Simulated scan of single mutants.
Amino acid sequence: MNDSLDNGYKLGGKSFTVVAINTAATAGEWIKSKLGTFSNLDYKYSPHDLVTEVDKGAETLIRNLISTHFPQHSFLGEEGVEPGPDASAQALADLSDSEYLWIVDPIDGTTNYVHGFPFFVVSIALAYKGEVIVGVIYDPSRDELFVAEKGKGAYVKGKRMSVSAENKLIDSLVGSGFPADRNYALPINLTGIQALAPKVRNIRVAGSAALHLAYVAAGRLSGFWEIGLNSWDMAAGSLLIQEAGGKVTDTEGKPYSLGVRNVMATNGNIHQELQEELGLCGGTGF
């Protein structure tokens, strides 16, 4: 961990960033230890949107660890919200007046986790008056910790991250997803994938939006977009990318906020070209 992050945002002498790091690492190791042992597999929004008792246990663990340090802070976790986009939007709206709000996805990539496909992460963000100030994504399979603090850069394994340098889509490796909402978000996203596939170097769909965002920040992807995501999918990753020199907006190019659902994140250089191509094919979701 880079020392420049150790003296950041604090409350009562406790560093928000250090608590987020320790919590993500503890939850990630616990999740990894349970790999292949879960017994209850349920559907959430659709048969493509899964949840296990490990998701729920990890969220309880994270909530308890954070509340031990910051009992007055608000908490928004995926497993505490009813399935579906309307419930997600309402849950965020209900907490919109919170001074400090922790936004957590205990396992982003549950379907991967269920199948033993090692692309799943813990995502923890802290927003202050609606603006993300700390973002941590932990990949237990590779023991990679991605950390950003507002104004202090973004780091992976203690090394400063920087977005990639590609200037054109045709030279870019980009990420996207297959949304769980099969009726609305998926067809729009597939439209974008079909239109963009011939215009980029290639497209990757690894099944974890948070990990894709971390990879944009680390320069491993030039960009990422997806329709119908939630705040807990994006909050930590959005800060990672911004602090690594990249750009995050909605798919129309409007500034990122916690309420964004259709997201576009890039190294900045290809942002306009990606947005234009999504607009031309009807892939923005707007």
Results as ranks from 00 to 15, higher is better:
residue 14 K to F: 15
residue 119 F to D: 14
residue 111 T to E: 06
residue 99 E to D: 09
residue 119 F to K: 08
residue 64 N to F: 03
residue 132 V to W: 11
residue 275 Q to V: 01
residue 229 L to A: 12
residue 223 G to E: 14
residue 231 S to A: 12
residue 97 D to W: 02
residue 113 Y to P: 11
residue 286 F to K: 14
residue 59 E to D: 09
residue 88 S to Q: 14
residue 34 K to Y: 08
residue 107 I to L: 10
residue 128 Y to D: 13
residue 11 L to C: 05
residue 178 F to S: 04
residue 132 V to L: 09
residue 114 V to W: 04
residue 249 T to L: 01
residue 132 V to I: 01
residue 267 N to F: 04
residue 172 S to E: 06
residue 99 E to Y: 13
residue 56 K to M: 12
residue 202 N to W: 01
residue 65 L to V: 00
residue 37 T to W: 02
residue 269 N to A: 04
residue 251 T to Y: 00
residue 183 N to T: 15
residue 4 S to Q: 14
residue 197 A to I: 00
residue 46 S to I: 00
residue 241 I to A: 07
residue 103 I to Y: 15
residue 262 N to M: 08
residue 46 S to F: 01
residue 139 D to W: 08
residue 204 R to S: 05
residue 254 K to C: 00
residue 175 G to E: 06
residue 63 R to F: 03
residue 82 E to W: 06
residue 282 G to V: 02
residue 163 V to K: 11
residue 239 L to D: 15
residue 42 D to P: 01
residue 179 P to H: 11
residue 99 E to G: 12
residue 174 V to W: 10
residue 84 G to I: 00
residue 4 S to I: 13
residue 117 F to G: 07
residue 215 Y to H: 09
residue 73 H to T: 00
residue 285 G to E: 07
residue 248 V to G: 09
residue 221 L to C: 09
residue 219 G to Y: 04
residue 160 R to D: 13
residue 102 W to I: 07
residue 108 D to T: 13
residue 285 G to N: 05
residue 131 E to Q: 14
residue 253 G to C: 03
residue 119 F to S: 10
residue 43 Y to M: 05
residue 116 G to A: 03
residue 30 W to I: 11
residue 19 V to M: 14
residue 238 S to W: 14
residue 51 V to Y: 10
residue 178 F to M: 11
residue 214 A to L: 15
residue 166 E to A: 01
residue 216 V to Q: 09
residue 151 G to D: 07
residue 38 F to S: 08
residue 248 V to T: 08
residue 254 K to M: 03
residue 229 L to T: 12
residue 20 A to S: 11
residue 15 S to Q: 14
residue 61 L to I: 02
residue 282 G to F: 09
residue 201 R to G: 01
residue 54 V to L: 05
residue 143 D to V: 01
residue 21 I to E: 13
residue 194 Q to G: 12
residue 56 K to I: 02
